[in-house]
Computed example of a mutant assay.
Amino acid sequence: MKRSHWWLLGGGLVVVALGAAAAVVIPQVLHQQRVAQYNETVEQINTAFAQTQHAQLETDRAIVLYALQLDEAHAFQAVVEELAGYSDHYFSTESLAALAGANESLLSRLADDELEEAEHDLIAQARSMIDEHGYVWQTDFLNLDIDAVEQLLSPASATTPTPVADDQVTTAVLEDARDVLEAALEEKQQVDQQLTVARERAQSLIDELEAALVPLTQCAFEAPDQAEQVLVMYPDAAVEAVTQLRDSAAMAAASVDAKVFTTNDDYAVVPVIGEPDADKPSFAATDSWRATVIATHLTKYSNAITAAWITDAGSLEDALGFNPYLPFFALAAP
C-alpha cells in the first residue's frame, strides 16, 4: 500500500473516532443544558409560588382589616349623623352644614359596599378568632394596619413542586415544568390584581373617614367657647353636667393635634396632654381613627349640653311657670 493510502486510512480512523466521541459528548452536553434550564425553571416556579402566597396573605389581611374597619365606619357614620342633627346652640351653623355634608358622603360610600361570599367566610373565621382569644384591640381597627391582623388568619400551607432527579430530566419533563411556570405566573398576576383592588377599596374608605375629620375639627375647636356660652345660659346646671361639658369640649379640642392618646380610668380614649404617663400605654393615631375619637368626645359634649339645660330647667320652670329654652334646644328631627 502506498504511503498516501496509509495517511488516508489514518485520517479516516480519526474521523470515525471523533464521530464516536461526538455521539457520546453532544447528548451529554445537551442533557446538561436541559437540566440547567429545568433547574432554572423550577427556581422561577418556586419564586412565583412564594410571591403568590405572600400576595394572597396580604390580600386576606386587607380584606379582614377592611371588614372590621367597615363596622367601625358604620358606627362612626351614625355618630356624625347624630351630631349633624343638633341645633345651632350645640355647633355653629357652618359646622352643622359641614357635618351634614360629611354624613351624606359617608352614607353614599357605605351604601355601595358589599362583601363577596368568599370574603364573608374569611371574615367569619377572623371574628371567630377574636371571640375565642378576646383581643383587647378589637374596637380600634381604624388605628391598625394589615400586619396587626395577621393573628386572625390561619397560615396557608406553602406549595412547592418536587423536582425530579437530574438523570430523569427529559425534554418532556422540561416542557411540563415550563407549563407549570406559565400557570404559576398567571395565578400570581391574578392575585396581584386582587391585592390591588383590596388595597384601593380599603384606601377609599379611609379617605372618606379622613374627609370627615375636617368638619369634626371645626366643631372641636368651637366646643370650649360654646360650652362657656351654654353655661352662661344655664347657671343652675348640675355640677356633673358642667364638669362633663367642659371636660368633653377640652378633650375634643385637644384630640385634634394630640401626638399620642391613652385611656383613662373609664377606658375611654383621651389625648395625652403634656408628657405621657410611663405607667399607662400610649399610642399614635391615624387620621381616620382620630376622627372617631373626636366624634366620641363631641357626643359627650352634646350630651352634656342637653344635661345642662335639663338640670337647669327645673329652677327656671318653677320661677317662670315654663321653660323658656326648651323650644330652642330641642334636637332637630331626624
Rank of each mutant, 00 (worst) to 15 (best):
I206Q: 14
F283W: 11
A295G: 05
Y86K: 02
L298N: 05
L331N: 02
Y38N: 01
L99P: 02
Y135Q: 06
Q203T: 13
P224I: 03
A268P: 01
A211P: 00
A252F: 10
Q32K: 04
V191D: 08
Q193D: 14
A21P: 00
A227W: 08
E58L: 14
L18M: 11
L245R: 07
E81A: 14
L245V: 07
E117G: 00
V24S: 06
L316C: 02
K280S: 14
L96Q: 09
H297T: 06
L96K: 14
A20I: 01
V164K: 00
T47F: 12
Q33Y: 04
L144N: 06
A212S: 15
A22S: 11
W6K: 12
R290Q: 09
A223Q: 12
E116R: 13
A48S: 15
E117W: 08
A238L: 08
A78P: 01
Q51W: 06
W7A: 12
W7F: 14
T296I: 02
T47M: 10
L122Q: 03
L205M: 15
N143T: 05
M233F: 04
R3H: 06
K300F: 11
D225F: 08
A78L: 10
F221I: 06
Q77E: 15
V14T: 10
A307Y: 06
R109S: 12
P27W: 15
F283S: 09
G274V: 01
N39D: 14
F283I: 05
A102Q: 04
A198L: 05
V80N: 03
D236M: 09
V29G: 02
L57K: 10
M129G: 03
T196W: 02
G12Y: 02
F329S: 00
I206M: 11
G85R: 03
A295Q: 09
I146Q: 10
A73W: 13
T171F: 01
L68C: 08
L331D: 00
S95P: 05
V64D: 06
G19S: 11
D225P: 01
G274A: 01
G11M: 12
G10H: 05
A198R: 03
E208H: 04
N303A: 09
E186I: 04
A156M: 14
